[in-house]
């Protein structure tokens, strides 16, 4: 999830709505968050369509969508970036993992309007032209996929770990990094696979960077 605290995520809204039903005291907090958004110049409005713009896979895109549309649905149904999958739609499976401003994020738990101005990377944007990301190569080599439905989310999580490790190692030396099995398990602990590809994913990740 993006770290910008001013953003109201869908999880906050859901949580807020639930809590409000019991406590009736959450409204001021939501109002405060909404005000913060206005202050940042983010489109406010609804329930009708609002304008939102972000960078996706290096390309500036503008959309006119209802504020309740998730980033996931915007990607899939409005931008035809269908590599990102909708599986649980509640942040419990990781199939919709994308990068927002360089951090992994469940696209089903973020409203598209909250991605205003953000830089979003999806599975379609990971390869450099025909040159696959090393993690993508490793997934093929180790057969870390079966039906392939969790694969885009798994790869975005694993590639994020890989990129982070590269950044951390950049200063110390150019030498390849080493991952522990624990780190890999942690990186995909939010990603579910039903076919049972986990162990091949472990070997794919551990084989990269050596």
């Amino acid at each position: 999830m993006a770290e910008d605290r001013n953003r109201v995520s869908r999880r906050d809204v859901l949580r807020g709505a639930g809590a409000a039903a019991f406590l009736g005291s959450i409204a001021p907090a939501l109002q405060a968050q909404a005000k913060a958004k206005v202050a940042k110049g983010i489109a406010r409005g609804g329930p009708g369509a609002v304008e939102v713009g972000f960078t996706i896979n290096g390309e500036r895109r503008k959309l006119s969508i209802e504020p309740r549309v998730t980033l996931l649905d915007a990607l899939r149904d409005r931008l035809e970036l269908t590599g990102t999958k909708r599986v649980c739609d509640r942040g419990s499976c990781g199939a919709c993992t994308v990068w927002v401003d360089g951090k992994t994020c469940n696209a089903c738990m973020m409203l598209a309007i909250d991605a205003q101005g953000a830089v979003v990377t999806t599975i379609e944007g990971l390869a450099n032209g025909d040159r696959l990301h090393p993690i993508q190569d490793a997934f093929i080599r180790e057969d870390a996929l079966q039906c392939g439905f969790c694969t885009p989310g798994m790869i975005m999580s694993c590639a994020a770990l890989h990129e982070r490790k590269l950044r951390e190692n950049m200063d110390s030396s150019a030498a390849p990094y080493r991952l522990s099995l624990e780190e890999v398990k942690e990186a995909i602990s939010g990603n579910l696979c039903r076919c049972g590809t986990y162990t091949h994913i472990f070997s794919a990740c551990l084989g990269v960077g050596r």
């Binding site: 899939r76 149904d77 035809e80 970036l81 269908t82 590599g83 990102t84 999958k85 909708r86 999806t122 599975i123 379609e124 990971l126 390869a127 696959l132 993508q136 997934f139 093929i140 080599r141 057969d143 996929l145 392939g148 439905f149 694969t151 885009p152 790869i155």
Partner: peptide, 21 residues
């Protein structure tokens, strides 16, 4: 042998039924 549809699946280009629009 690696999967013949491996590249499609790791790049998000494999079209599943609900990717059809």
């Amino acid at each position: 042998h690696t999967r013949v549809d491996g590249v499609l699946k790791v790049t998000g280009r494999a079209k599943y039924s609900y990717d059809v629009h």
